[in-house]
Amino acid sequence: MAKPTRVTNSIRALRFSHGEMTQAELAEGIGVTRQTIIAIEQGRYSPSLEVAFQIARVFKVGLDDVFQYPDGDQ
């Protein structure tokens, strides 16, 4: 169930570069709980595409700037 995802993210760095936005503020901006933001940041939850776009929109960046997937073998 808890198979580690290969998707990484820069949400923590983006929050700090956007006025040290708190997890609670980001959570409120996209309509999820703070625990969900924590789980996404720590790679314990892969968000839906819709939530991923919402996060990118909050930071006014592209999806690739928030989430990364490594090149190479699948």
Binding site: A2, R44, S46
Partner: peptide, 12 residues
Amino acid sequence: LVRIVAYRRGLQ
């Protein structure tokens, strides 16, 4: 139990 494990250890 599945829900608790998913909350604690993650859901991919």
